[in-house]
């Protein structure tokens, strides 16, 4: 489970290669050498993870997908995708030390 103040960003060394021609992106994770295909949803989440907090991510993700998904569905989808990206070593989570 993530906390609203957790921050998310690209894990060190990870290369994200958008492939707009095919509607997907590829990620290279050098620390555990692998190439992974991201579908539109995980690509969007990975793009949003630029050091933002979970709360910020929830807001921006919901805004981006608001024409096709309500807030609850968006939040659930974001959390599932985020968990997958962290597990794969593409996105790193840091607990916010700020009060």
């Amino acid at each position: 489970m993530f906390c609203p103040t957790d921050r998310f960003e690209r894990a060190p060394g990870v290369v994200l290669r958008p492939m707009p021609e095919w509607g997907c992106a590829y990620a290279y994770t050098p620390r555990r050498p692998a190439l992974t295909e991201l579908n539109t949803t995980t690509w969007l989440i990975a793009t949003l993870c630029d050091g933002a907090t979970l709360a910020e991510l929830e807001e921006e993700f919901a805004d981006t997908v608001r024409r096709v998904a309500g807030d609850n569905a968006a939040r659930d989808t974001l959390h599932r995708g985020l968990a997958m990206l962290v597990e794969a070593g593409i996105i790193a989570r840091t607990e916010d030390a700020a009060p």
């Binding site: 290669r17 095919w22 509607g23």
Partner: peptide, 15 residues
């Protein structure tokens, strides 16, 4: 699905 133009896959630049 983006990426197929007249049956030929399109790549702007190689990966």
């Amino acid at each position: 699905t983006p990426g197929e133009v007249s049956g030929t896959p399109w790549m702007a630049r190689p990966m």
